Amino acid sequence: MFILNPPSSIFQYAKKLFLSEQAGRVQFQEFARKNAANALSLTNLVMGLSSILCSLNGHHYYACWFLLFGFLLDLADGAVARQLNACSALGAKLDDFADFTTFGIATSLLLQAQGILDSVFVICFVMAVFVRLCFFSSGIPFVYRGLPCPYASAILASTSLLTGGNRFLLYIVAVVMILFMTDQGNYPHDKVLESQLWKKVVFIGGLMVLFCCPLRLACTYYLIWCFSYTFFPSSLWGYEC
């Protein structure tokens, strides 16, 4: 003999099931909102680790590509965190760790150290990035102290590709980047994805040339972009410009 549930019981069960699924979707959306920027930082970290592996195996061409993509990810993660109101202490630490790995350790391997003096210089570059990140953590609001290390990394990676890995030129560029990162000069938060339309176009253009154009052309694009920020930070890239 079968006992049928009354319609009211079935309706209540369906309602509970619907509310449960709705609550699950809300929780998932909240989780995605809070961790979208962290996912970009983790991807940046993966780009850095991939670049390290490529450099250790002599594939400097691909190592530079990973660094340039990491540069774009670093510009995007902060914008995403602010737009989604998902800034957190964990996210800041994760971003710093990813930056140190990608723009410090991975970038320094492009110098291809072949002796003790070269190795000491590589350590100096990594320490300059470390000092730069420490200054940023305690810097002035809306202002970077010293050239942001992603720009120094993009310049070094682009130079490596355009010169075929010429070590002499790479070391000269690295010295200049160390000086810019540690001089404590003020650089504005460029906020490429949160500012004027032309800055967003520059970012989208960087993404397109990296995936759709020969890498040498992409490197020229990134050099112009990064040098313009390095030498004309306030007049050209200031947030209120």
Rank of each mutant, 00 (worst) to 15 (best):
F168Y: 11
F168A: 11
F168L: 14
F168G: 03
L169P: 07
L170C: 04
Y171G: 00
Y171M: 04
Y171P: 03
Y171D: 04
I172D: 03
I172A: 05
I172L: 10
A174H: 00
A174T: 03
A174L: 04
A174W: 01
V175T: 09
V175H: 02
V175G: 03
V176Y: 06
V176Q: 05
V176C: 08
M177E: 07
M177R: 01
M177Y: 01
M177N: 05
M177S: 02
I178P: 07
I178H: 00
L179N: 00
L179P: 00
F180P: 00
M181T: 04
T182F: 01
T182W: 01
D183W: 01
D183C: 06
D183P: 01
Q184T: 07
Q184W: 04
Q184L: 10
Q184G: 01
G185Q: 05
G185I: 03
G185P: 00
N186G: 02
N186T: 02
Y187V: 12
H189C: 06
H189R: 05
H189S: 06
D190Y: 11
D190Q: 08
D190S: 14
K191W: 06
K191R: 14
K191I: 11
V192M: 14
V192C: 09
V192S: 09
V192Q: 10
V192N: 05
L193Y: 12
E194L: 14
E194G: 11
S195K: 10
Q196F: 12
Q196S: 13
L197P: 09
L197F: 15
L197W: 15
W198V: 15
K199V: 14
V201Y: 15
V201I: 15
V201M: 15
V202A: 15
V202G: 09
V202E: 09
V202H: 10
F203L: 13
F203V: 10
F203I: 10
F203T: 10
I204H: 09
I204E: 11
I204D: 12
G205P: 13
G205N: 13
G206Y: 08
G206L: 12
G206C: 12
